[in-house]
Protein backbone atom coordinates (compact mmCIF):
# COMPACT_ATOMS: atom_id res chain seq x y z
CA UNK A 1 0.00 0.00 0.00
CA UNK A 2 1.55 3.23 -1.03
CA UNK A 3 0.29 6.68 -1.85
CA UNK A 4 0.98 6.08 -5.55
CA UNK A 5 -1.99 3.72 -5.72
CA UNK A 6 -4.17 6.82 -5.86
CA UNK A 7 -2.45 7.73 -9.08
CA UNK A 8 -4.69 5.16 -10.73
CA UNK A 9 -7.61 7.25 -12.02
CA UNK A 10 -10.23 4.60 -11.21
CA UNK A 11 -8.93 4.20 -7.70
CA UNK A 12 -8.73 7.96 -7.30
CA UNK A 13 -12.36 8.43 -8.29
CA UNK A 14 -13.55 5.51 -6.17
CA UNK A 15 -11.73 6.88 -3.13
CA UNK A 16 -12.55 10.54 -3.51
CA UNK A 17 -16.19 10.28 -4.62
CA UNK A 18 -17.48 9.55 -1.11
CA UNK A 19 -15.13 12.14 0.41
CA UNK A 20 -16.31 15.02 -1.78
CA UNK A 21 -19.79 15.55 -0.26
CA UNK A 22 -18.32 15.44 3.25
CA UNK A 23 -15.55 17.89 2.46
CA UNK A 24 -17.97 20.14 0.59
CA UNK A 25 -20.54 19.99 3.39
CA UNK A 26 -17.88 20.57 6.02
CA UNK A 27 -16.53 23.51 4.08
CA UNK A 28 -19.96 25.12 3.80
CA UNK A 29 -20.63 24.49 7.50
CA UNK A 30 -17.30 25.94 8.63
CA UNK A 31 -17.48 28.96 6.36
CA UNK A 32 -21.09 29.75 7.30
CA UNK A 33 -20.41 29.33 11.03
CA UNK A 34 -17.11 31.19 10.88
CA UNK A 35 -18.46 34.08 8.85
CA UNK A 36 -21.64 34.46 10.92
CA UNK A 37 -19.59 34.29 14.08
CA UNK A 38 -17.13 36.79 12.75
CA UNK A 39 -19.70 39.06 11.19
CA UNK A 40 -22.27 39.25 13.97
CA UNK A 41 -20.61 38.17 17.19
CA UNK A 42 -17.22 39.84 17.29
CA UNK A 43 -16.56 43.38 18.50
CA UNK A 44 -15.01 46.08 16.36
CA UNK A 45 -11.29 46.56 16.75
CA UNK A 46 -10.03 49.90 18.04
CA UNK A 47 -7.98 50.79 15.05
CA UNK A 48 -10.05 49.23 12.30
CA UNK A 49 -13.64 49.81 13.34
CA UNK A 50 -15.99 47.34 11.70
CA UNK A 51 -13.61 46.75 8.79
CA UNK A 52 -11.88 44.15 10.94
CA UNK A 53 -14.66 41.79 9.86
CA UNK A 54 -13.11 41.64 6.41
CA UNK A 55 -10.25 39.63 7.88
CA UNK A 56 -12.41 36.47 7.90
CA UNK A 57 -12.39 36.52 4.11
CA UNK A 58 -9.09 38.22 3.42
CA UNK A 59 -6.67 36.02 5.37
CA UNK A 60 -8.10 32.58 4.45
CA UNK A 61 -8.39 33.40 0.75
CA UNK A 62 -4.84 34.78 0.68
CA UNK A 63 -3.55 31.62 2.35
CA UNK A 64 -5.32 29.38 -0.15
CA UNK A 65 -4.14 31.53 -3.05
CA UNK A 66 -0.48 30.96 -2.14
CA UNK A 67 -0.78 27.36 -1.01
CA UNK A 68 -2.86 26.54 -4.08
CA UNK A 69 0.05 27.56 -6.27
CA UNK A 70 2.43 25.48 -4.14
CA UNK A 71 0.10 22.50 -4.51
CA UNK A 72 0.11 23.01 -8.29
CA UNK A 73 3.90 23.15 -8.22
CA UNK A 74 4.11 19.84 -6.33
CA UNK A 75 1.54 18.23 -8.63
CA UNK A 76 3.45 19.47 -11.69
CA UNK A 77 6.68 18.02 -10.34
CA UNK A 78 5.01 14.68 -9.70
CA UNK A 79 3.66 14.69 -13.24
CA UNK A 80 7.03 15.53 -14.76
CA UNK A 81 8.87 12.90 -12.72
CA UNK A 82 6.39 10.05 -12.39
CA UNK A 83 3.96 10.72 -15.27
CA UNK A 84 0.78 10.17 -13.26
CA UNK A 85 -2.11 11.69 -15.17
CA UNK A 86 -4.13 12.33 -12.04
CA UNK A 87 -1.40 14.63 -10.80
CA UNK A 88 -1.39 16.77 -13.93
CA UNK A 89 -5.17 16.98 -13.90
CA UNK A 90 -5.16 17.93 -10.22
CA UNK A 91 -2.86 20.84 -11.04
CA UNK A 92 -5.21 21.88 -13.84
CA UNK A 93 -8.18 21.56 -11.50
CA UNK A 94 -6.59 23.70 -8.80
CA UNK A 95 -5.69 26.66 -11.01
CA UNK A 96 -9.12 28.31 -11.35
CA UNK A 97 -9.76 27.79 -7.63
CA UNK A 98 -6.49 29.50 -6.76
CA UNK A 99 -7.24 32.26 -9.22
CA UNK A 100 -10.62 33.02 -7.65
CA UNK A 101 -9.01 32.99 -4.19
CA UNK A 102 -6.38 35.49 -5.36
CA UNK A 103 -9.14 37.67 -6.74
CA UNK A 104 -11.01 37.55 -3.41
CA UNK A 105 -7.85 38.41 -1.49
CA UNK A 106 -7.18 41.35 -3.82
CA UNK A 107 -10.74 42.61 -3.71
CA UNK A 108 -11.11 42.38 0.08
CA UNK A 109 -7.68 43.95 0.42
CA UNK A 110 -8.62 46.88 -1.80
CA UNK A 111 -11.91 47.43 -0.02
CA UNK A 112 -10.14 47.25 3.32
CA UNK A 113 -7.33 49.50 2.23
CA UNK A 114 -9.71 52.23 1.11
CA UNK A 115 -10.82 53.38 4.60
CA UNK A 116 -7.60 52.37 6.38
CA UNK A 117 -4.92 53.75 4.10
CA UNK A 118 -7.16 56.20 2.26
CA UNK A 119 -6.61 54.51 -1.08
CA UNK A 120 -8.08 51.58 -2.99
CA UNK A 121 -4.77 50.48 -4.24
CA UNK A 122 -1.27 51.11 -3.02
CA UNK A 123 1.79 49.67 -4.71
CA UNK A 124 2.54 47.89 -1.50
CA UNK A 125 4.77 44.79 -1.78
CA UNK A 126 2.15 42.36 -0.54
CA UNK A 127 -0.57 43.71 -2.77
CA UNK A 128 1.74 43.86 -5.73
CA UNK A 129 2.94 40.30 -5.16
CA UNK A 130 -0.65 39.12 -5.20
CA UNK A 131 -1.37 40.98 -8.39
CA UNK A 132 1.63 39.27 -9.98
CA UNK A 133 0.46 35.92 -8.60
CA UNK A 134 -2.89 36.58 -10.27
CA UNK A 135 -1.14 37.19 -13.59
CA UNK A 136 0.71 33.89 -13.22
CA UNK A 137 -2.55 32.04 -12.58
CA UNK A 138 -4.04 33.74 -15.61
CA UNK A 139 -1.17 32.70 -17.88
CA UNK A 140 -1.23 29.14 -16.56
CA UNK A 141 -4.96 28.71 -17.17
CA UNK A 142 -4.67 30.34 -20.60
CA UNK A 143 -1.91 27.94 -21.62
CA UNK A 144 -4.04 24.93 -20.59
CA UNK A 145 -6.90 26.26 -22.68
CA UNK A 146 -4.73 26.90 -25.72
CA UNK A 147 -3.30 23.42 -26.27
CA UNK A 148 -5.60 20.71 -27.59
CA UNK A 149 -3.44 17.65 -26.84
CA UNK A 150 -3.85 16.87 -23.12
CA UNK A 151 -0.45 15.28 -22.50
CA UNK A 152 1.37 18.05 -24.29
CA UNK A 153 -0.65 20.63 -22.38
CA UNK A 154 0.20 18.89 -19.11
CA UNK A 155 3.91 18.89 -19.93
CA UNK A 156 4.06 22.50 -21.05
CA UNK A 157 1.98 23.87 -18.18
CA UNK A 158 4.10 21.91 -15.70
CA UNK A 159 7.28 23.47 -17.02
CA UNK A 160 5.60 26.87 -16.98
CA UNK A 161 4.57 26.26 -13.36
CA UNK A 162 8.17 25.43 -12.38
CA UNK A 163 9.70 28.40 -14.17
CA UNK A 164 6.85 30.62 -13.02
CA UNK A 165 7.41 29.65 -9.39
CA UNK A 166 11.04 30.72 -9.55
CA UNK A 167 10.10 34.03 -11.13
CA UNK A 168 7.18 34.56 -8.75
CA UNK A 169 9.58 34.16 -5.83
CA UNK A 170 12.07 36.52 -7.49
CA UNK A 171 9.29 39.04 -8.10
CA UNK A 172 8.36 38.88 -4.45
CA UNK A 173 11.86 39.86 -3.36
CA UNK A 174 12.14 42.43 -6.13
CA UNK A 175 8.89 44.02 -5.06
CA UNK A 176 9.96 44.19 -1.42
CA UNK A 177 13.16 45.84 -2.49
CA UNK A 178 11.30 48.24 -4.72
CA UNK A 179 8.86 49.60 -2.18
CA UNK A 180 8.51 49.27 1.56
CA UNK A 181 4.89 48.67 2.36
CA UNK A 182 1.87 49.85 4.26
CA UNK A 183 0.63 46.35 4.87
CA UNK A 184 0.97 45.04 8.39
CA UNK A 185 3.07 41.97 9.10
CA UNK A 186 1.80 38.42 9.21
CA UNK A 187 -1.53 38.05 10.96
CA UNK A 188 -0.98 34.47 11.93
CA UNK A 189 1.86 33.52 14.13
CA UNK A 190 2.18 30.80 16.70
CA UNK A 191 3.62 33.34 19.08
CA UNK A 192 0.51 34.43 20.97
CA UNK A 193 2.10 37.73 21.95
CA UNK A 194 2.07 38.74 18.32
CA UNK A 195 -1.07 37.38 16.80
CA UNK A 196 -4.43 39.03 17.01
CA UNK A 197 -6.71 38.83 20.05
CA UNK A 198 -8.55 35.59 20.78
CA UNK A 199 -12.02 37.04 20.06
CA UNK A 200 -11.01 37.41 16.41
CA UNK A 201 -8.66 34.46 16.36
CA UNK A 202 -11.19 31.67 16.97
CA UNK A 203 -13.69 32.53 14.22
CA UNK A 204 -10.76 33.21 11.92
CA UNK A 205 -9.44 29.69 12.48
CA UNK A 206 -12.91 28.30 11.73
CA UNK A 207 -12.98 30.27 8.49
CA UNK A 208 -9.51 29.09 7.52
CA UNK A 209 -10.54 25.48 8.14
CA UNK A 210 -13.59 26.11 5.97
CA UNK A 211 -11.55 27.57 3.13
CA UNK A 212 -9.08 24.68 3.28
CA UNK A 213 -11.93 22.17 3.15
CA UNK A 214 -13.50 24.10 0.29
CA UNK A 215 -10.24 24.04 -1.63
CA UNK A 216 -9.88 20.28 -1.06
CA UNK A 217 -13.48 19.61 -2.07
CA UNK A 218 -13.31 21.76 -5.19
CA UNK A 219 -9.97 20.34 -6.32
CA UNK A 220 -11.13 16.74 -5.81
CA UNK A 221 -14.37 17.50 -7.60
CA UNK A 222 -12.70 19.22 -10.54
CA UNK A 223 -10.01 16.54 -10.78
CA UNK A 224 -12.73 13.92 -10.96
CA UNK A 225 -14.43 15.91 -13.69
CA UNK A 226 -11.19 16.19 -15.68
CA UNK A 227 -10.49 12.44 -15.35
CA UNK A 228 -13.97 11.57 -16.58
CA UNK A 229 -13.79 14.09 -19.41
CA UNK A 230 -10.55 12.51 -20.60
CA UNK A 231 -12.03 9.05 -20.43
CA UNK A 232 -15.12 10.20 -22.31
CA UNK A 233 -12.97 11.67 -25.04
CA UNK A 234 -10.95 8.47 -25.28
CA UNK A 235 -14.13 6.40 -25.57
CA UNK A 236 -15.45 8.75 -28.23
CA UNK A 237 -12.31 8.30 -30.29
CA UNK A 238 -12.55 4.54 -29.86
CA UNK A 239 -16.14 4.56 -31.10
CA UNK A 240 -15.16 6.68 -34.09
CA UNK A 241 -12.37 4.30 -34.97
CA UNK A 242 -14.71 1.31 -34.63
CA UNK A 243 -17.22 3.01 -36.93
CA UNK A 244 -14.65 3.90 -39.54
Amino acid sequence: MSIWEYANPKKFIATTAPVIPWAFGGAILCIVVGLIWGFFLTPDADRFGSTVKIIYLHVPSAMIAINGWIMMLVASLIWLIRRHHVSALAAKAAAPVGMVMTLIALWTGAVWGQPMWGTWWAWDPRLTSFLILFLFYLGYVALWEAIPDPDQAADLTSVLCLVGSVFALLSRYAVYFWNQGLHQGATLSMDSEQHIADVFWVPLVVCIAGFILLFVALVLMRTGTEIRLRRLRALERQAQRAAA
Binding site: T51, I54, I104, W107, L218
Partner: peptide, 26 residues
Amino acid sequence: GKYASEVLSAYGVSLALLVGLSGWSW
Protein backbone atom coordinates in the same frame (compact mmCIF):
# COMPACT_ATOMS: atom_id res chain seq x y z
CA GLY B 1 -20.76 52.19 11.67
CA LYS B 2 -19.29 54.30 8.92
CA TYR B 3 -17.59 51.40 7.20
CA ALA B 4 -20.81 49.54 6.40
CA SER B 5 -20.48 49.82 2.63
CA GLU B 6 -16.89 48.57 2.62
CA VAL B 7 -17.59 45.56 4.83
CA LEU B 8 -20.77 44.65 2.99
CA SER B 9 -19.23 44.92 -0.46
CA ALA B 10 -16.25 42.82 0.62
CA TYR B 11 -18.59 40.11 1.87
CA GLY B 12 -20.99 40.39 -1.04
CA VAL B 13 -18.44 40.13 -3.82
CA SER B 14 -16.40 37.42 -2.09
CA LEU B 15 -19.41 35.26 -1.34
CA ALA B 16 -20.70 35.70 -4.88
CA LEU B 17 -17.33 34.56 -6.26
CA LEU B 18 -17.18 31.59 -3.89
CA VAL B 19 -20.74 30.51 -4.62
CA GLY B 20 -20.20 30.97 -8.32
CA LEU B 21 -17.04 28.90 -8.37
CA SER B 22 -18.54 26.16 -6.21
CA GLY B 23 -21.77 26.05 -8.18
CA TRP B 24 -19.95 25.93 -11.50
CA SER B 25 -17.61 23.14 -10.32
CA TRP B 26 -20.44 21.16 -8.78
